[in-house]
């Protein structure tokens, strides 16, 4: 199986963290349900062209935080995640997304007021 995740070489975040966050996102958004099987560490490494050291680290962190569990000899599966954690992860994802946009705007020399104006425009346009 292939997961709909991709890593960016140019991101500030290390690759293992990008994988971790994207899998978390898939879980909390319900795209990966409890009990769903995840690809093996090697298969994911191949898909993303990263080392098993990286994917293993991502899986280990997810496992330590109770998002997934590995059953020896069987595979890795998504665990049941409670609502409160789901909400806080969603917050984290949205926060990171906005932060990225903010950093980009700052690089281009925008002031906070200008950024807020653009933000408001985005919200208006979505209505």
């Amino acid at each position: 199986m292939k997961l709909p995740i991709e890593v960016s070489e140019d991101s500030k975040e290390p690759i293992y963290y990008q994988i971790e966050l994207q899998i978390k996102t898939l879980i909390v958004s319900g795209q990966l349900q409890a009990g769903a099987a995840l690809p093996s560490i090697r298969a994911l490494s191949n898909d993303l062209s990263c080392s098993v050291i990286t994917t293993r680290r991502a899986y280990q962190n997810l496992e330590n935080n109770d998002f997934i569990q590995t059953i020896q000899g069987k595979g890795t599966y998504v665990k049941e995640v409670d609502q409160q954690i789901k909400t806080s992860i969603k917050d984290e994802v949205i926060y990171t997304t906005f932060k990225k946009a903010y950093e980009e705007s700052k690089l281009m020399g925008y002031t906070i007021t200008e950024i807020k104006e653009i933000c408001d425009k985005v919200f208006r346009d979505q209505k």
Partner: peptide, 8 residues
Amino acid sequence: FEKDEIRH
């Protein structure tokens, strides 16, 4: 070296 470490 580890591939991803060096790329990072």
